[in-house]
Design a protein around this nucleic acid. Sequence first.
DNA 1: CTGAAAGCGCTTACAG
DNA 2: CTGAAAGCGCTTACAG
Lengths: 347, 347
Amino acid sequence: MEKPPKVTQREIARIAGVSQATVSMVLNDREYSNVRIPEATRERVRRAIEQTTYVPDPAARRLAGLDNKILGVFTYEAALSRESLDFYGPLLHGIEQEAERLGCDLLFFTSSPVEDGTRKLFHKQTRLRLTDGCILLGQQMDSAELTRLVEEGFPFVAVGRRDEPGVPYVGIDYVTLTGDIVEQAVALGHRRITYAHYGRSTPAAADRVAGLALAAETMLVETTLLSTADSDLSEVAAVIANGTDTVVITEDVFMAEALAVELAEHGKAIPEDLSLAVLGDVEGHSLGGRGMTGFQLPREQLAAEALALLQQLIVRNDKARAKLELRTMIEGSIVAGATLAQLKESR
Amino acid sequence: MEKPPKVTQREIARIAGVSQATVSMVLNDREYSNVRIPEATRERVRRAIEQTTYVPDPAARRLAGLDNKILGVFTYEAALSRESLDFYGPLLHGIEQEAERLGCDLLFFTSSPVEDGTRKLFHKQTRLRLTDGCILLGQQMDSAELTRLVEEGFPFVAVGRRDEPGVPYVGIDYVTLTGDIVEQAVALGHRRITYAHYGRSTPAAADRVAGLALAAETMLVETTLLSTADSDLSEVAAVIANGTDTVVITEDVFMAEALAVELAEHGKAIPEDLSLAVLGDVEGHSLGGRGMTGFQLPREQLAAEALALLQQLIVRNDKARAKLELRTMIEGSIVAGATLAQLKESR
DNA sequence: CTGAAAGCGCTTACAG
DNA sequence: CTGAAAGCGCTTACAG
């Protein structure tokens, strides 16, 4: 199996009887310093290309300073495992669709070494430079890495709101959504709410807490915050079961499911004894046959918008880039569900 | 936002007070023509690299003829959509895991233009050349493309058996699995089997038919083949309902589910009136609460082995490559299930 | 209008 | 042992 020598522009030039530079110009449909290539020449070049199996070498193009039409996808943990896919699936689908539309390929940084449980974007062999720009996904983004990307002026977009200055992102407006859930609870007669959360320090987690605090102040409800980082879930359940709050809100659907089981052991049924709502996506989940009350998050749209923004960062020049809205929050919606119910009597 | 000039080996060389070539050698831990670089020099270079944000430019490495540690993933249709993920999910997971182990990144050719319903691997802008090698996934592989890859000596591996000469693959042994299903049916007293299939011309489809024919001959059973390409599913159901065959085997689980609905309308219950088995993966699927009889296919393993083989094709020299087993079939297993039952009486 | 040439950042021979 | 140089396949100025 001898490899036939790779066809290059030089070979095309030889066949067409022109210079290699001319081939490059025809291929890129570009003309420099009042150069004009006659249609006849272009045609000769095109025919020569068709005769052969020529494809431009993307490494050479990139080295010469051109776009690659390759976008990087960096996830802070494995994205394609069965469990991750529940979260990453819709995001990846949105990314794939948008990439297809833009004519870009996607480089997944699966090789990134794992340190302290999360992958590192920068390492001795990072292929980041090969891409025109990069999308960052995951809860546990590394602040130092984000800052370095900003400093280097490397085009990238984070999926999810970030606090670091200069970081472009597309995020979900958890503050508003959380307020909407509280509003619903209040409309149903509730006045005392427990929020069970993971005690994480991510921006999204902070936004939920902020949204809750804001709503509590505006609507005069009392809130109790319980973190599973401080005490385990069964303790949290015990506190709720023995307390007087009438609604329990959880950070995500998995905590809701686990907590419902614990609460059942305390004789608390949902929503008869206690209402429940989730500050996360509840699509496809139910609790004892009942649809859950929570969010419907447009994850595919989120990812697609992030990719579209990235593309703009890449193709625009510095001036046009300055006009770009680097930070976008998109709205999710509330899923009414059946786990948040009218308050029956005062306890 | 001025981009700081990219750090190159030249800059490292300047800092360390050595030549750029020396930097390259230290980085790659390589020595040519009885060259030996003293540890002291190596240390100076390493320190210079740590001082800066140097990362090697993968495009330049590739252009200079080195491996990229990038493996291409080509799917003949979108892989990350909700529906595709059912099929591609386990394969992609296996690929991701193995890539992580090998320290490789993955390039998904999402940009490939769609023609006649399937994506084209070769097009004017294919980034194939950027990868060290490529994994091919999908039912509808293009023979011409496979042949071209073989001719060009480009390293690649197909997931699924292929007929084209010289194509390396890792496939599933449908012939044996199909025989096993027939054997089970025979052991349960059945002698007449209908096989409902899509009439596809893929190697996997052909293997199922071949396995069935072989088993039928060996075990003296009569088989009827019905293709949904010739007549639609309700007609197929009618033929089965009015016939005397006691087992219906379908090509995959989706056809099984659809066919069961049609058969119910003819008053045929499964497995009381008719047994059913599937020549495809049945994990996670059931029919009216009953586990389906069919295959359990080790898709993750399949994909991982394909990637491992690809890696071998890439790193081995021509001589060592010749010793490689280019074609592997791996065994799936039978899921007993409850839809294939003992034949009650003769009809 | 076309060709010869520099340069992108590397690897790897080959002189010193 | 080290440095200067060629080459990978492109793009893009700059002479002719």
